[in-house]
Amino acid sequence: MNPVSDLAASLISIGFYGISYAMILYVISVGLSITMGMMGFVNLAHGVFAMAGGFVLSICLARYGIPFPLALAAAFLSVSVASVALERGLYARFYGAGELTQVLFSIGLIYVAIALARLEFGTQAAPIMLPDYLKGQVKILGHDFPTYRLFVIVFGFAIAFALWIAIEKTRFGAFVRAAVDNRAMAQSIGIDTRRLFTLTFALGSGMAALGGALGADVLAPQWNYPLEHLVYFLIVVSVGGFGSLHGPFVAALLIGIADTLGKYWFPEFGAFLIYAATIGLLLWRPHGLFGACS
């Protein structure tokens, strides 16, 4: 092996792992960005939905032997439905409350969630039994890639595309965009914002669950998941800019690739590079890459 092709191989590998990690971050965080932008709700408990998605997947696969695609759908649906109850019963009371109140409320939810997760699943990470067809390697242009990672990338791009269609091309999407732009205005032209919030919240939580399930092999579902990964979700959202759809996508790609690169080439720096880059970027653009300037 000569050094040039060595470098090329490691670059390809970093890019590949980075992008698949990015897709997981994106699918989890995009819902948080929309709820932040539309409802202005500082929901630190977003990671709870991702954790729940991972656990649902694990239970479906390990306990009931449900096929992988159905298990993914189950994670999405069950968490969406549960989040509607949470939104109606709890979250809705704190729209328009101060930031501190929302932060405390969502931290309270995190504590309740991690306590329940620990009661039910203990302190071990939940096992994820991938189906055989996702286990092996795929050879592309002379490089071996893990099938599962490839699946995550394809799936992530498909989700991003589907969301883009849903937000840009449908009536529901037009309402969402209007409400993100100006809530009062949206209300005054007759959009039922209460229902819209609930639907968007359910969609966002469902996406988080899907991301949590999809990424369960990388970010293992375990009891303190919502706290452990909180900073990363927040970084994706603030770097991308609240309320933006492509913001989190670009931010997730940047962070996923940079993080993988940092861990591969400069393991002694750990996550330091990511934090430093995030701080630098927010100094340059306090509203994130695609955030609306107030």
Partner: peptide
Amino acid sequence: CIILRTKGLTVIMLTLAFAAILLELANK
């Protein structure tokens, strides 16, 4: 000086990030 230039969720995120950076530094 850096954190307080921003608002809302970004403030929270930056406070978390600075603490995490110091933890990384101390660890390494």
